[in-house]
Amino acid sequence: MAEPSSNPLRQPLPDGVVPESAVARTEKRWVITMVTMLAIMMLVIVATGLADALHPASNVEVVDPRTLHLAGEFVESNLGTAIEPDGSATVRLVAVQYDFVPNCVQVPVNTPVKFRLTSADVVHGFLLPDTNVNTMVVPGFVAEVRTRFAQTGEYEMPCHEFCGLGHHAMWTRVRVVPVAQFPTEAPQQRTSCAEQ
């Protein structure tokens, strides 16, 4: 046997009983580690949420998924990009097995954009790579995401919630075009690049 160590954990235990001081110290160390980890994780969530606008939609809006096509905000003729009086863009989309409608979205660059989505059947997902846009599209609820595109280009927009046998084919495009190229239209008109 070696010399008795000064570390209480290395001391031979009397009949299997751990000294209480050793237990308390170890537990304290573990608690500090855990609380620090938890605090760091919460800090990361809050910091990215505030800095990159990466947070879930802050409002709950309900809608009947079975009658979307008959009346209300998500009728076929109202889908696509609308330019609001203040110059911002509102994009309305319906996610349905197995497509987004319209299946090509056109938005102006450097303009506040508000996506409003809902699902007509099951849970879908909506994700634009390299942006803060990432949300679930749940039937019965409207998912609202705000963003702003700094560069022109085309984003591929996959459904990232498994939604059925055709899930792998469910993706579409968001085309960010210069504001000058963006058609200036009456407030009641909707545009998309789906027909092209």
Binding site: E61, A71, G72, V75, E76, S77
Partner: peptide
Amino acid sequence: ALGIASDTGPATAPQPPLQT
């Protein structure tokens, strides 16, 4: 967040002619 109030009023916004 609780769904008690929603300040977004989409139904009243002007829409293109209804097409179903």
